[in-house]
Design a protein around this nucleic acid. Structure first.
Lengths: 215, 215
DNA sequence: CAACTTATGTGACCAAGGTCACGGAACCTG
DNA sequence: CAGGTTCCGTGACCTTGGTCACATAAGTTG
């Protein structure tokens, strides 16, 4: 791995001890993903743990008919908890993972992550922390699907989105509809309502968010 | 802990190495739960990891208005993954846990579970396996809420229920409605349809399941 | 700028499921 | 076994959100 990546690694994952960072830099591979590239498909075997260096990935669920919904985003400095869990037993993936922006990820071979759990305290803590965080996000997603109406879920979605990529949301209504497992027309209607209340401004292929807390 | 529990422990958790079983037997406390007892409340601090020796517990999510829905069941031989995750950082619980039947659980103090991860390979594997299993079950629950109509969710629910407690389901329609976050009337209607198709027979406070795969 | 392509707006309509109101069945208890 | 309590069945009605059919707007490209 080039030294540039190693620097980024230390910036993005400061909680990992230096010796470990060294090992990661030496023994992992770097992968560049273009926007829209799939990092992981449902049913695919997982052979490596994924750490995100830059860009933005989304992790989502897909059913037999191709319906999907967003589980959570992976930002730089985070790891795919599922990939860690699954590498431990080289299981198949239960989810899809796709680059939302051009991204750089580190792929760590399965056998290393396993050994590191015992060897590096900081790795162990990192893994536990990742699990916890993903579990919590998944619970939140579950809450919103189970308890909330679509307009509230849309708000939740927009808020989550601006947290990872700012108040200028570059998405079509159709894309949002997919991620919420809804339909384009309904999302359009709800967004229109939000615009009328002054919370957002709609443009073609983008949404300018002003204030979502007022609604 | 009495020797009877230790025997049960070894029966229910054969994958744990003998030395570990010994430690658990010596350093944990046994707790008896009556049907309906809460083992864990949302917002409560988690100080111990929960292992189930006998009986049946349910883990569910509850929102501000008291709506709830079932996440999964914990059977003998399983552990509450959340309690493990959370003890690691003495965090608050995100979920509710309640005894469905009279149950016996082992409470392991937080500091021990942490230390054991490094000390006992079998404990570490057990914890990882628990995470994985719960994550998968949570994903299934999420799938059913996000993609399925209520009649399919009801089928999913009934199947899951008979898997843990047999084909004689001792629940009122109201209780089922709560766990699916629906309403009593709707559940009644759907159950009636299932009865008309011969899949089940309805009684007061119980449902006799014949065959759910034919529908 | 004309012809396309893609994104958005909107009304009409429909189905699932939640709510209300009430009646009746099953069980319990004095 | 009379009266209460809990549970279940059912019709009427309403809301949410999905679907269909088009209209329009905003970019894009020759």
């Amino acid at each position: 791995m080039e030294s540039i990546a190693k620097t980024t690694l230390q910036q993005q994952f400061p909680q990992l001890e230096p010796l470990l960072a060294e090992e990661i830099a030496n023994q992992s591979t770097l992968r560049q993903l273009k926007e829209g590239d799939e990092a992981l498909r449902t049913g695919q075997y997982i052979r490596s743990t994924v750490l995100v260096l830059s860009g933005l990935l989304k992790v989502y669920r897909e059913d037999e008919e191709g319906n999907e919904f967003l589980m959570y985003y992976l930002e730089p400095g985070s790891a795919c908890a599922l990939s860690i869990m699954c590498t431990a037993r080289s299981e198949k993936s239960q989810v899809m993972m796709k680059a939302v922006e051009d991204s750089e990820v580190i792929l760590i071979p399965a056998h290393l992550t396993e050994a590191w759990l015992a060897k590096y305290k900081s790795w162990h803590n990192f893994v536990i922390a990742s699990y916890r965080q993903r579990f919590e996000e998944l619970l939140q997603t579950l809450d919103s699907v189970a308890f909330k109406s679509l307009d509230q879920r849309l708000l939740f979605y927009l808020k989550r989105h601006i947290k990872v990529s700012g108040p200028d949301i570059k998405l079509s209504h159709q894309q949002i509809a997919y991620e919420l497992n809804s339909s384009r027309e309904v999302i359009s209607r709800l967004l229109k309502k939000l615009e009328q209340r002054g919370a957002i401004t709609l443009h073609r292929n983008s949404i300018e968010v002003h204030n979502l807390d007022s609604v």
